[in-house]
Amino acid sequence: FDIYVVTADYLPLGAEQDAITLREGQYVEVLDAAHPLRWLVRTKPTKSSPSRQGWVSPAYLDRRL
């Protein structure tokens, strides 16, 4: 999967189903980028939180090589 970094805090609107909150600087794996406005991502697990999966706007993501 492609690795992206979150460029700004992402707080989903209440109406968005299956969306997750992301923090600036967080790394995520993009699982599904087929839709231009919503990408399915999975967060990297940390010592304090397990990995999470949900939909985010790709405008908040920047690809890492």
Results as ranks from 00 to 15, higher is better:
G54A: 05
I20H: 03
A34H: 13
V30I: 09
S51Y: 07
L40K: 04
I20N: 02
Q53S: 10
R52N: 08
Y10P: 02
A15V: 12
K47Q: 13
P36M: 05
T7C: 12
T21A: 13
L37G: 13
P36N: 07
Q53H: 07
Y27V: 13
A15D: 15
D18S: 07
I20Q: 03
G14C: 14
R63A: 10
A59F: 08
L11M: 12
Q17Y: 11
K47I: 11
E29F: 12
L13I: 11
D18E: 09
A33Q: 12
V41D: 00
S51V: 10
Q17M: 12
D18L: 06
V30D: 00
K44I: 15
R23Q: 10
L13C: 13
K44L: 15
A15C: 15
I3E: 08
D32Y: 08
L65V: 14
Q53R: 06
R63Q: 11
Q17A: 13
D18V: 04
T43L: 07
D18K: 05
L37C: 12
Q17G: 12
R38H: 07
Y10E: 03
Q17R: 11
V28W: 01
S57M: 04
L65G: 14
R52V: 15
V41R: 00
G25F: 03
L65H: 13
P58I: 04
V6S: 02
L65S: 13
R64W: 15
S48I: 10
Q53D: 07
D62E: 15
I3C: 14
I3N: 04
W39E: 01
L37R: 07
T21K: 09
G54W: 05
R63K: 15
R52K: 15
D62F: 08
S48V: 10
V5K: 06
A15K: 11
R52W: 12
P45M: 07
V28I: 05
V28M: 01
L11Q: 11
V30E: 00
P50H: 06
L37V: 06
R64C: 15
P58W: 02
E29G: 02
L65Q: 13
H35T: 09
D32R: 04
A15Q: 12
E24K: 15
Y10T: 05
Q53L: 11
K44N: 07
D32I: 08
D32A: 05
D18Q: 07
Q26H: 04
Y10G: 04
P58N: 04
S48D: 15
A8T: 09
L37D: 15
S51H: 04
L37W: 08
Y60E: 02
P12L: 08
S49H: 12
G25R: 02
E16R: 06
G25P: 00
A34Q: 13
Q53A: 08
T21C: 14
I20E: 03
L11V: 15
W55H: 03
T46S: 10
R42Q: 07
W39A: 00
F1V: 08
P36A: 08
Q17N: 11
D9F: 04
G25M: 02
R64Q: 13
V5H: 04
V30G: 00
Q26W: 11
L65A: 14
E16F: 08
R42W: 02
A19L: 07
D9E: 05
R63D: 06
L37T: 11
V6G: 00
I20G: 03
V41N: 00
V41K: 00
P12R: 06
Y27G: 03
S51A: 12
D9C: 06
Q53G: 03
K44A: 13
R23K: 13
R52G: 06
L61W: 01
T43A: 04
D9M: 05
A8H: 12
P50W: 03
L65Y: 13
R64L: 15
S49I: 10
F1H: 12
Q17H: 13
T46L: 06
R23G: 04
S48Y: 12
V41F: 01
T7K: 10
H35D: 15
Y4P: 00
V5P: 01
G14M: 11
T43N: 02
K47F: 11
W39T: 00
E16Q: 09
L11T: 14
T7Y: 03
D32V: 07
Q26K: 02
W39V: 02
D2T: 09
W55I: 03
D18R: 05
R52L: 14
A59G: 07
D18I: 04
E16D: 13
R38D: 02
K44P: 10
R42I: 04
S48C: 14
V56D: 01
L61I: 04
V28Y: 01
G25K: 02
S49C: 14
P36W: 04
R23F: 14
P45Y: 05
R42T: 03
Y10I: 08
A8F: 07
V56T: 04
D2L: 13
E24R: 15
E16S: 09
R63N: 10
D18C: 11
R64V: 15
L11R: 11
L37Y: 10
A59H: 10
L37H: 13
K47E: 14
E24H: 10
V56F: 03
Y4M: 05
A59Q: 12
R63L: 15
P58D: 01
D62N: 10
A33M: 14
L22V: 05
Y4G: 01
G14N: 12
T43E: 03
V56C: 07
L22A: 01
Q17D: 13
I20K: 02
R23P: 03
S48P: 04
P12H: 06
G14Y: 11
W55F: 09
L61R: 00
Y4C: 06
V6E: 00
L13G: 13
H35G: 11
K47A: 14
Q53E: 13
Q26V: 06
L22R: 00
D9Q: 05
R38E: 04
V6P: 00
L37A: 10
V5F: 10
Y27S: 06
L22N: 00
I3W: 15
D9K: 05
L31T: 02
A15W: 14
F1I: 08
Y60Q: 03
L37I: 06
A34G: 11
K44S: 10
V6R: 00
T43D: 02
Q26S: 06
A33W: 09
R23Y: 15
L61E: 01
L13Y: 10
Y60R: 02
Y27I: 14
D18P: 06
R42H: 02
A19H: 13
R63E: 08
P45K: 08
T21D: 10
L61Y: 00
D9G: 06
P58Y: 02
F1G: 10
Y4A: 07
L22S: 00
Y60G: 04
V41H: 01
T21P: 14
L37M: 10
T43H: 03
D32S: 08
R63H: 12
E24I: 14
T7Q: 05
P12Y: 06
I3Q: 06
A19W: 13
T21E: 14
P12T: 07
R42C: 05
S48T: 12
L40W: 09
L37N: 13
I3R: 04
P50I: 07
K47C: 14
E24Y: 11
Y4L: 03
L11A: 10
V41Q: 00
D62G: 13
L13N: 14
A19N: 09
Y27F: 12
G54R: 02
A59M: 12
E24P: 10
Y27D: 04
L11F: 15
G54V: 10
P36T: 07
G54D: 02
L13R: 11
K44Q: 15
Y4K: 01
G25D: 02
R38C: 14
A15M: 12
D9P: 05
L13Q: 13
T7G: 04
R64N: 11
A8D: 05
Q26A: 06
V6H: 00
W55S: 02
P50S: 07
D9Y: 04
W39M: 01
E29A: 05
L13H: 13
W55M: 05
Y60N: 07
P58K: 03
D18T: 06
A15I: 12
S49N: 11
D32H: 06
E16G: 11
A34M: 10
V30Q: 00
Y4V: 03
S51N: 03
P58H: 03
Q17P: 13
L31W: 02
A34N: 13
F1P: 10
Q53M: 13
Y60H: 08
D18N: 10
A15E: 14
V5I: 14
F1N: 09
H35S: 15
R52H: 09
Y10M: 04
T43Y: 05
R38F: 09
G14R: 10
Y27T: 08
L61T: 01
L13F: 11
E16N: 08
S57A: 06
A34R: 15
V56S: 01
S57W: 03
R52I: 15
H35I: 04
V6W: 01
P36C: 06
S49Q: 14
L13T: 14
G14W: 12
T46Y: 07
A59Y: 07
D62M: 14
D32Q: 06
T46D: 11
A19I: 06
L22Y: 01
L61F: 03
D2V: 11
Y4D: 00
Q17S: 13
V28A: 01
R52Q: 14
H35E: 08
V56R: 00
G14H: 12
S57Q: 05
P50F: 05
A8P: 02
V41I: 07
G14L: 13
A19D: 09
L40Q: 03
S49W: 09
L40P: 00
R64G: 11
W55C: 05
Y10N: 04
